[in-house]
């Protein structure tokens, strides 16, 4: 996660993405319009996860819960209550923030992996809730008839409209990520990712910062969920199942944890590669799993960020590298 080298990689990926979007708008390819919109929506949710995982170093499975709040919230507000679709985009985010605070406050105080485990349980529970709470969520059939956004009466519900809106929102999300990662908040996040104890000794309010990261993730997750609902014009429990959360993790790892363009690259990968691998049938998932492992082990900076630092000569302070030994062993 070296700030200096991000420039080239991020610029290339985002540049390529921009070119792809423009080209698609010009050529009017239906497939690419659809694919790129979906990529943008996944990427927005992944940017949220990237803040938690890539910046603050916190493992959180709560993204699908936030997406669920965004999606079902938008659906109920617009399809059921008939409110303006913009409310459907904005209001559920507040709900997501409230949930973030509710789970973060008690859970972030616990040491170890409790937060991760609790959010995993939350992810499973959210899925069950989506299926079971028929009155709230429409059960397995879901809610249909979710209207798209409109500006001054002009509906943005066309494929091109969705493409433009989703990429504008993605650009906003990336701008937020960019500004935060370079700010004192971003530095404090990265500090607590290494060592909360050291961060605390410097006066960094670790608990508050973890909550802040979760809140940012919640807003992005919720917005992604709302857009998804409007794009598909209906919501069903499927869109927040385990596969979705696993995909989000894949996106963040394959794209490059902590990198600005990571979610974009990763989303493109996750959305497009299955097509390429579809000939493998059931083996798709196994291949995916292996890919994830490989990325985590050998390419911590994602698909285009080979970690070649082990080739760089280490500064010689006349010592040979030795395996780590804990202080207790002294």
């Amino acid at each position: 996660m070296i700030r200096r080298t991000i420039g080239i990689r991020d610029a290339s990926v985002l540049g390529a993405a921009l070119v792809a979007v423009i080209a698609t708008l010009l050529t009017g390819s239906a497939y690419w319009t659809y694919a790129l919109t979906l990529i943008a929506i996944y990427a927005i949710a992944a940017v949220g996860l990237n803040v938690m995982l890539g910046l603050a170093g916190q493992v959180s499975f709560a993204q699908t819960t936030f997406m669920g709040i965004g999606g079902y919230g938008a659906a109920r507000l617009t399809a059921t209550l008939g409110w303006d679709p913009w409310w459907g985009l904005v209001l559920p985010a507040f709900g997501a923030v409230a949930v973030a605070v509710l789970i973060g406050l008690p859970l972030f105080r616990l040491r170890g992996h409790y937060f991760a485990m609790a959010t995993f349980a939350l992810a499973l529970g959210t899925n069950s809730l989506a299926v079971g709470a028929v009155l709230l969520t429409g059960g397995s059939t879901g809610i249909a008839g979710v209207p798209p956004l409109a500006i001054a009466g002009l509906s943005l519900g066309t494929p091109q409209g969705f493409l433009i809106v989703s990429w504008i929102v993605l650009a906003l999300a990336l701008a937020v990520f960019f500004v935060l990662s370079r700010s004192h908040i971003g530095r404090a996040w990265r500090a607590l990712a290494t060592s909360p104890d050291v961060a605390v000794s410097l006066g960094v309010p670790v608990l508050r910062l973890k909550l802040l990261a979760l809140i940012v993730a919640a807003v992005m997750g919720s917005v992604a969920g709302s857009l998804y609902a409007q794009f598909s014009s209906f919501v069903a429990p499927d869109f927040i199942n385990l596969v979705m959360i696993i995909n989000l993790f894949l996106i963040v790892f394959i794209g490059g944890r902590g990198m600005l363009s990571g979610p974009v690259l990763g989303a493109a990968f996750v959305a497009l590669i299955p097509q390429a691998l579809s000939f493998l049938g059931e083996w798709q998932n196994v291949v995916f799993f292996v890919l994830l492992l490989l990325f985590m082990l050998f390419l911590p900076r994602g698909a285009l960020g080979f970690d070649l630092s082990w080739l760089r000569p280490r500064p010689r302070d006349s010592s040979h590298p030795v395996p780590e030994r804990t202080e207790a062993a002294r």
């Binding site: 010592s319 030795v322 780590e324 030994r325 062993a329 002294r330």
Partner: peptide, 10 residues
């Protein structure tokens, strides 16, 4: 003879 514990030169 030299012994290091990680970065610490003992």
């Amino acid at each position: 003879l030299g012994v290091d514990y990680g970065r610490v030169r003992a």
